[in-house]
Amino acid sequence: MIDHAHDLASVRDATDRVLSAAAGLDNVSVAEPSRLPGWSRGHVLAHLSRNADALVNVLEGRPMYAAASIRDADIDRDAPRPLDVQVADLRESAARFQDAGAVPADWSRSVELRNGVVDSASRIPFRRWAEVELHHVDLGIGYELEDIPEEFTRREIDFLTERFDGHPDVPSAHLTDGTHAWTTGRPSDKPDVTVTGSLVDLLGWLCGRRDGSGLTVDGGSLPALPPL
């Protein structure tokens, strides 16, 4: 059972971590490349701010973005801003998200995100948590996948294996860290491959932050995953 209140608190904690880390940057370093191809650290911070506002739209029953092109245009517009403006925007947009999450509501209702994706409102705080944790890593300023809370790592693996489950372009795969196990990819009576590794390495591969070199694959090669 998803506990949206717990996840909102986890989002707040994760946001505090990224705000504290970002405050240690300066106007030169915020303009430097992030770990995401083609994006500066300013792009990453701008995306986090605009994503918070987009998820407020979702919680309040509006389209996530008024048009498909607006998401990228807003990020490009906001990326070059000085550090103090970036940090203030992230703090204020995060507060708006928390305020929207504090409004009494039917958390079992369905809501629509980008590209026609429909989900339970109760999963929106976890989706925001994922944005904050993974993009903190993308900033490339000392926060790594190993620093992410284990609860999030396990749940994000759950989320991503569910996302790829049944995908026709992903071979049937059994994933394990030796304690937990997941299946994903094309339906099959017997998985094509078994992928074994630490929780962190499994997460890194599934979310596209690592190439999977830390994983062991039996039965074939490591599956190529579609972009998120």
Rank of each mutant, 00 (worst) to 15 (best):
T179C: 00
D99W: 04
L199M: 12
E133Q: 12
D99S: 15
L222G: 00
A121T: 13
D106T: 11
L113S: 05
T196V: 11
G178S: 02
L203T: 02
R91W: 05
Y143K: 12
V137K: 01
P226S: 14
V118P: 03
H6E: 13
V87K: 03
L222K: 02
D84I: 10
K190C: 11
S20P: 00
D211C: 07
L225W: 09
S122C: 11
I2T: 15
L199T: 13
H136R: 06
D147C: 06
A94C: 02
A68Q: 15
G101T: 08
G220H: 08
S10V: 07
A100Y: 11
P33W: 05
L202Q: 03
G214V: 07
A66N: 15
Q86C: 10
L48K: 02
D169A: 04
D78T: 06
N51C: 09
T176M: 00
T176V: 00
E32S: 08
L139D: 04
R128L: 09
S49R: 02
E150R: 06
V118C: 01
T216A: 00
S34C: 01
A95K: 10
W205T: 08
D26I: 10
V11A: 06
R114W: 04
R114Q: 04
H43D: 11
V103Q: 15
E151K: 12
V30W: 02
R155S: 06
L59W: 05
G166D: 09
G142K: 12
D84A: 15
H174N: 13
P149V: 08
